[in-house]
Amino acid sequence: MGQVIVITSGKGGVGKTTTTANVGTGLAMLGKKVVLIDTDIGLRNLDVVMGLENRIVYNLVDVVENNCRIKQALIKDKRYPNLYLLPSAQTKDKTSVSPEQMKKLANELREEFDYILLDCPAGIEQGFKNAIAGADRALVVTTPEVSAVRDADRIIGLLEANEIRQTHLIVNRLRTDMVREGNMMSSDDVVEILAIDLIGVVPDDEQIVISTNNGEPLVGSESKAGRAYMNVCKRVLGEDVPYLDLEETQGFFKKFASIFKK
């Protein structure tokens, strides 16, 4: 029986789609059978991030409206034998799908796949409700900014209210130089405020922009973000992986800076 994971954030632009693409690809690299579902109806973008935009025939709305079978709508990623994408519809609107339909779809896919990853739209309306309806667990993505953290707190509350028991935090786009200067919250600061368990810290890395341009997730590469995402995947599988030392000199500078703080 597969596990259904929703990737959500509340605020837009913090890296939900990038995280879905990288965690999904990473899990496939680790030998799991994975399907990624873009639940942002009307604004599809997981397909371009994955580099699969030219192969779409059917979409999520076609599946729930029974215009096609699930298998017909799944795009197989030729780079990895176990990875599939169910793209969103571009021309329909959010009300085309109901939470009940999403639940049913997730349960059908559970039979076939180890992991079903749902890329959730921004906001807390219909699209969010659809995405979380069938989920067993959630990955909440945030950046170390006040707006993103506040929205993440709201989302965590809503996930709790909807009885999603397992919720983990990914702090994305961390800039260690700014953390060192005391001008950006660290992952510890964000965890302290949100009070949920951390599952990943992804540094701000220009390689992400390049990989998105190319339509090739960078998980598993030697870049810092690539390694950080692979560690997230291993932690999703239950492995206890130590956090990367994103800034080797941090210890010294932290001490140095703390002298001037008071």
Binding site: E145, V146, R150, V179, E181, G182, D189, I193, F260, K261
Partner: peptide, 15 residues
């Protein structure tokens, strides 16, 4: 410049 992170944390906690 030293404490903008602390300002952010405190504002967030209240909000």
């Amino acid at each position: 410049s030293e404490n903008s992170k602390e300002i952010a944390k405190n504002r967030l906690k209240v909000a």
